[in-house]
Computed example of a mutant assay.
Amino acid sequence: MTGRSLRFGVVAPITSDMSRWRDELQGLADSGYSTILMPDVPQWQPAPGPALAVAATITDLRVGTWVYASPVRPAWITAWEAHSLSVLTEGRFEMGIGTGRPGIAGQLRELGLPVTPVGQRSSQVRDVVTALRDLDGPDLHTPVVMAVGGPKAEALAAELADTVTFVMPQIETRAATMQRVERFDDRRGVELALHVPVVGDSVAAFMAGPDTDPAAVRAADSLAFLPSDPSAAAEEIQRRREEIGFSYFVFGADAAGALAPVVAELAGR
């Protein structure tokens, strides 16, 4: 279905001491992963911008946000940080952005920030991307990865994104996800990314809720699941590219080691 080469990213938040995190990132680079990703969850770990700037000095991999929550951040400041990361990493930064996790209204209240109505949140994302393009100018193009759910977000991504990842229930069936992708207006041929929080019996931190049941996700034939067996995972990844068009797969750091043989085999193919 797609001629895009496969690539693989890892959500690698700083959840332990810095020396262990540095070793973890170096291991990812040695395994063939393409991108180190950082979540945007205030008060849980260091802010994504500084963390990614440090990560970019540890390896020569690409770095990116997975993803900025637009309601938490003023548009121009977000764009400035993204543009700055592009400059400082010499083009290795990818700006992932979306309208925030479920329940973000409660987070905004805790932070003393205005609660943006749901219908206006896609406009916030547009404002960030518009400001980023102005800052980049004609000589730099910071790739934009959009996490999209509803029709407004999908339409915006169809217009502006370089990569799209679909926000979907973790027990959404394969058939339902295929329909979601088929409905997406991909006239520009953007890269399609798949967020995979469950690998075997493991649920990735920062990628899924603590009440996620791996057995239920697997039983639903959900694309949020991959088997931990490398041979089976490699077969399934190739199937998802051929049948649906996904070419960029994002895992959690806890599963990165188990899937390293898959990445070594498939990256760039």
Rank of each mutant, 00 (worst) to 15 (best):
L156M: 15
A258V: 08
A79Y: 04
L156Y: 12
V190S: 00
A224W: 03
G32K: 04
E110Y: 07
R239M: 05
V144R: 05
V67P: 07
M146N: 04
P39Q: 05
F93H: 09
P210N: 14
Q170I: 00
Q238A: 07
S5G: 11
S70Y: 00
L25P: 02
P230R: 10
G49W: 07
P71C: 01
P210H: 11
R22E: 15
T35M: 06
E265K: 14
V148H: 12
R121H: 04
G98S: 07
E182L: 05
A131G: 10
F8G: 06
G119S: 13
D23N: 08
L223H: 07
V262Y: 08
A220N: 01
V217E: 06
E154C: 14
V128K: 07
Q179P: 03
R101A: 12
V199T: 11
G91Y: 10
D201V: 03
P13C: 08
F93Q: 05
V145K: 05
S123Y: 12
A234R: 05
A216I: 01
R240F: 02
V196A: 14
A161K: 04
L194E: 02
P50H: 06
R269D: 04
E154A: 14
D186W: 05
A55W: 00
V190T: 03
V41P: 01
D139V: 10
F184N: 11
S84C: 00
S19G: 01
F225S: 07
D139F: 11
L85R: 03
E81Q: 15
Q107N: 05
A53Y: 06
D134R: 15
A264S: 07
S34W: 02
R133I: 04
Q107P: 01
A157V: 08
A208E: 06
L111P: 09
P210V: 01
P50V: 03
E24S: 13
E110Q: 14
Q107R: 12
P261I: 02
